Simulated assay, not measured.
Amino acid sequence: MTDEPPAIPRFSYKGDRLKPLRAFCQTVRLGSVSRAAEALYLSQPAVSLQLQALERDMGVRLLERSGRRLVMTREGEALYELARPLVEGIDALSGAFHERLRGLDAGELHVAAGSSTILYLLPDIVAAFRAAHPDVRLNLHNVTGAGGMDLLRSDAVDLAVGSMLDVPGDLDYAPVARFEPMLITRLDHPLAQAKKLDLRDLSPYGLILPPQRLTTYRMVDLVFQRHRVPYTVALEVGGWEVIKQYVAMGLGISIVTAICLTEADRSRLAARSLAAWFPDRSYGVVVRKGKYLSPQARAFTELIKPDLFVRRDYDATGQSER
C-alpha cells in the first residue's frame, strides 16, 4: 500500500479562496454584513454564505455579535492578521503592476505629519525626494496625534512621520532618530545661569506647553508626577515656534525637543538638557500593518535616515554643542 499525500483543504463555496476571505476582511473592517455587502457590491445573503463557508472550512467560529456590531473571536483575529495583507495585496495588484511599469515618473504620495515635523524634520527629505522624483505629486497633510492615525486607518495617506509614545496594535512604528529634551528660558532667566539644575528648580516657574492632547504635554505630566514634583502650566499654545516666541517674551519657561532649536534661537533663548529626567523623543515612520506601500511611498521612506535628520543639541549657554 503506497502512502498518499495529505488532502489539500478546499473552500466549498464556489471553490474560491479569495471571495470568502475578502468578505471576512470587509465585515471585520466595517462591523456588519450589510455594510460589507454594500462595499463589495453583493447581496447580504451572498456575503453571509461566504462567511459561513469560511467558518466551515476553517472549522472554527470567526465572528460573534457584540451589541449591533460583529467582532472577531480569538481565532478570527488570528485569521484576519494573516488574511488582510493577502486580500489587500491581491486587490492592489493591478494598480501596483501598472505603477511598476511606469516606474516612479508619475503618481501621488500622501504623508501625514505634524507642524513641527514638517517644519524641522522633513525639509531635507522632501527636497531629496523632489529632486529624485520631480513628477510625483507630494501631499503633506498637516495633522497631529489621533488625526494622523485616522488618516492612516482610512487609507487617506500612505504613511505618517512623527513621534509616538504608545503604538496601537494595528500600526507599525519604525523610529529613525532620537532627540534630547531641553529646557528653554530667556537668556537672563535665573535657570539659565544656575550651575546645577534639578527638576524641582522648575517648580516656581510657569510652563508654556502644547495642548494636553499632544505627546509633549503628556510626557511632561508623566515625568513630574513620577518624581512627585509639583508644576504649574502658565499657558497652553500650539506650535513650537509660538512657544519659543512666548518664552523669549518672558511669559514662562518650556520643555521642548532639541530638534526645534535653530541657530536663530541662540540670540534670544537659553537651552539646557533635561536628559537626566526626560527620555529622548524618537521620530520615525508610521504605517498601517499589512498595508501595501506604493513605489513612491517606499522611495520616500528610504530617504528617512538619521543623516537627513539635523540634530541640534545645546549647552547651558544656548550654544550648539555639535
Rank of each mutant, 00 (worst) to 15 (best):
Q193S: 11
V167E: 11
R153D: 01
V157N: 10
Q245F: 04
D198N: 13
R226I: 00
K195A: 03
V167P: 14
P204N: 09
F179I: 14
A174M: 14
L214T: 02
L159N: 12
H227A: 04
L165W: 15
M164I: 14
A156K: 15
A160E: 12
R228M: 07
G162D: 10
V229S: 07
Y173C: 11
L199T: 09
Y205L: 01
R218D: 00
G147W: 08
L191Y: 12
I243M: 06
G252A: 10
D150A: 12
A156V: 13
G169C: 14
L187W: 05
V157C: 11
S163R: 12
Q212P: 00
E236K: 04
V220N: 05
G169T: 15
A160V: 13
R213M: 00
D150I: 12
H189T: 09
V233C: 03
P175D: 02
G252P: 06
L202N: 10
T215C: 01
V237Y: 03
G147L: 06
H227M: 04
G252D: 07
D201R: 10
V220A: 02
I243D: 02
G250A: 12
V242A: 09
A156F: 14
P181F: 06
V233T: 10
P168Q: 15
L187S: 04
D155F: 12
R178S: 04
D158C: 11
T144C: 08
T216L: 03
M182S: 06
L202P: 03
L235W: 10
M149L: 12
R153W: 13
D221M: 01
K196R: 14
A177W: 08
R153H: 12
V237M: 05
